[in-house]
Design a protein around this nucleic acid. Structure first.
Lengths: 158, 158
DNA sequence: CCGTCATTGGGATGACATGGGATATCATGG
DNA sequence: CCATGATATCCCATGTCATCCCAATGACGG
């Protein structure tokens, strides 16, 4: 199984189209999916994206829950936020206005590989998020009671 | 299996007609249904809609419930409330006056995908409801299913 | 230095939501 | 049984937007 790896930043053209990175398209084509299924991330101003496989699994889970129960509605509500973004013949998608605003995208888009799925971010926000994680890792590293003065992590990014 | 995904808001014209979103029509046409079967939601001021297939499943479920029980009567009452909304040649439906009032619709309609079925809401009410669910899902630490579990799913078809 | 592939751009076409007029269907009252 | 009005259905027109097709640019490897 191929994975979504690395981060790509592509531009939004005047029609609102963005090229999906070719490596991601390759992975998607192996996931029973001619388009991208996307929904708002719970934690960040980002979009969670995957192929059709995962969504069909979710729909299958729905069958195991009593039809008018609270839990059923909670899961079903995810489908309301979900969108299918079809790929055009050049491998581009169009991000709907509401999603653009939610993510805060103006002129370019970061595609962030997450292994089995990927995310869509505003590039600066993504970089900041990444940096915050580095800081966090670094900070927790410093609070550890180690006696090692030279931490190789520092200065990893030029 | 095709699913009802995403949320679409369409306008009611002066004759009371509303376009059913094209993707939903596509799903419906695969569900043995030239029209929409709809009934009032138990929990919200919304309409539950689907094709004929799902209603037939519900009718089958009725057989598993003791006749004359409270639950039986409740479910059976659904069928009394149920209406068939035929699609015109442009893919529009007409919402009867009582349903319009029940949902609180004035000039536009939200079609809300729920996977195997969809709902009809007043757009503002739907947005509020959906936002509440996002908060709830976030607070309850709702986790998405993984895209490809390591352990084989019980009953999975190779 | 050239060929291939990926991203980017733009015009033309088509699909869809929407609107309005004309015609058919139905329930009601005479 | 027919007349009438209201309502729904069919048909056609329009504007907007997405999709398709074609082209150009840029990156990369041989």
């Amino acid at each position: 199984m191929r994975l979504f790896l690395s981060t790509y930043v592509n531009k939004v053209d005047r029609k609102g189209r963005v090229s999906v990175p070719a490596p991601f398209r390759t992975v998607l084509s192996g996931q029973n999916s001619s388009g991208i299924l996307t929904f708002r991330s719970f934690k960040h101003n980002a979009l969670d994206c995957s192929g059709l496989d995962r969504v069909q699994e979710m729909a299958a889970q729905l069958d195991t829950i009593p039809e008018f129960s609270e839990e059923y509605e909670n899961l079903a509500a995810l489908f309301a936020d979900m969108k299918t973004l079809p790929l055009d013949s050049e491998g581009r998608i169009i991000l709907p206005e509401d999603l653009l605003q939610f993510v805060g995208i103006t002129d370019s888009v970061a595609f962030v590989g997450q292994g089995k799925n990927f995310q869509i971010w505003e590039p600066a926000a993504q970089e900041a998020h990444q940096e915050a994680r580095r800081q966090s890792a670094r900070a927790s590293g410093f609070t550890l009671p180690t006696s090692r003065p030279v931490a190789p992590i520092v200065g990893a990014t030029p």
